[in-house]
Amino acid sequence: MKMKSKANFYTATEAEVIRAMSKKNGFKNLMKSIWKHKVLYLMFLPCIVYYILFNYIPMAGIVLAFKKYSFMKGIWGSDWVGLQYFKTFFTSYDCVKLLRNTLTVGLMKCILEFPFAIIFALLLNELRNAKFKKISQTISYLPHFMSSVIIITMLQRILAPDNGVINQLISAFGGDGSTFFLMKSQYFYPILFLLDLWKNIGWDSIIYLAAISGVDPSLYEAAEIDGCNKMKKVWHITLPSIKGTIGVLFILGIGGLLSSGFDQIYLLRTPGNMELADTLDTYVVRVGLANGQFGYATAIGLIQGIVGLILVLGSNKLSKKVTEVGIW
């Protein structure tokens, strides 16, 4: 029964349209209006079908987190197991390790990396040579358009022991040029951090640059008359003026705290850094797709999804209260 009502709920968009279109009595104006727009509904139909098939049915499929999936019975026919998967996960040995790794990566990306794009935008904004500025910007966006596979293939070659360019340089300066960077777990977080920074700093700075260029120049002039130096102007005018943009991007970033950087982590895994390169994302892929524990993997995905949702809603509310900036 429960599942049926859920299925009905998620197909409400379609049902609503059909019901409204076929009802000839009552709601006369609404009906007229819907009839008047019938071509529009027809044009919109593919979009409705798409969202039901690829978003809302999988969303309803979350019930799998409370069921023991069997291929024969399908999602709806499978037997209920209650909260068993959640208990298994939170009592398992892996749990602490996975949460620690996931949070470390998430915090690194959401908090530690966050200011760099702002700083980069501030630097670019100070540049007087327009041509140099444009060329630097163009170069800085470049990594954003390279796929993670390409980037990490390049990285693997460059960091290769002995004949990789970094190790060659190290030995050229008299160091030990045989470090297998990707195999050593102590280099995992620094590599991941620098890689992500390298990939995103330019692209992320675009939005800040746009916000900075929107600041009223008369504010700077006034500050100059008041005797502010460059640093003071940045601190007292530029940053407060773009705090709305900063807030929105921070809220959006915080939602991905538990599910960030799958691509890079998955591709950077080596036998040497397995302990650290195991996050909730890679775990779901491993136990779900590789081992076929669908129910268990769905439960972990659900934890990630709910935490992400709560974080976005929560930080949005907090931000609205503190800075009067929100994403809606």
Partner: peptide, 23 residues
């Protein structure tokens, strides 16, 4: 508005990898 909301909601929450895979 309902359609817009239903679409925007998918940006915040999704079924996750496994239900999607089964679908």
């Amino acid at each position: 508005n309902f359609f817009t909301l239903a679409i925007a909601f998918t940006m915040l929450f999704s079924g996750g990898l496994i239900p999607t895979y089964i679908q």
